[in-house]
Amino acid sequence: MILLCFAHRAEAEAFFVEKDFRPDNRLKNFYKSSSGEEFLLITGEGPYSALSKISSVLSFEKTFSKIINFGTAGALGNQYEKLDVFSIRTAYLAESSEALPQFKSFPLQVIEGLPKIDCITSTQRIKDPKLKHHLSSFADVVDRELWSIGFAAKESKIPLYAIKIISDATEDLDFCQDVKNNSFKLSSLLLKAYFNLFTNEKQKTKDELFERVVSLSDFYFSTSQKRSLKKYLSETEITWTELERLIKKIHIEENNKANAKKLLETLSEFSSPEFHQLRNKVKGFMEKLEKSGIRVSHDQTFESPSLKLTTDIKSLQDLNCKVQALQNFSYRDWEDFINGDL
């Protein structure tokens, strides 16, 4: 599901006209489309209002796969013209009447097909040309809400996109009235950009790949195994075709948990063959000790050759067997292995 955010209702007007958004009673100015696929939030103007509103929504509705902020922005450089539409690359923040830039920034997902620029969210309306010039060192346009939405989206780990339309150029002083007069035009352009850029998106995300694997009937993944699966999928950038090839190599048993374990081992080898080889070598070293009932643990970072052995002695015969296993273990070979003799 997608959350569409606007600072003002006027900016969202074309969306209300095009789509059947109905109020969602959980929060004022929060709406749900009839398909249930899109939600729309009016955050109000200013970063504090936006942060409060979006945080509320994300606290009770946790199903968003992406957030898109739409809105107007003021140009900070002369190279931008009114009604130009951009994808925002990074959101910065300027605080106080002096528009002091704050360190924390939020990178956004950029939208292919639109030019990319940076946006600085200001706690104040920026009308003074001197302040505009000052902010132009850090960003290309100024708005009133994006940074806060970025903050909340990051906390919730939801990808954020922003489409901004230039509402006023650097020299425009009475831009508020202009925006009001042209609001439907601005809103229609934002809607057009949304239709062009998002409605035909077909690319499978990693999450979709993950869902596909965990829903396979021959596999059962525990919570920690699901975490490992996510990690491997993310590290390897593996495609579904490659994954299918790996799954075909696995000898499927009746035990679905064992199948999941085998798939993770295969993915581990795929993701890092050297480490897999290292673990097999360690297994080889420890095999005889383990078979005799001596549990061996080694430094997991491989920085030190030290080993920790634990065992129970059950009889004299058991003791002799373990002593024999220890005598057969070559600590020198182990040390050489740690020092790179593979």
Partner: peptide, 17 residues
Amino acid sequence: STFVKSFDNKFRYPKPI
């Protein structure tokens, strides 16, 4: 994915490698 935290807290390949 092979990397471990090594002697100076930097992330490296395991010492044997």
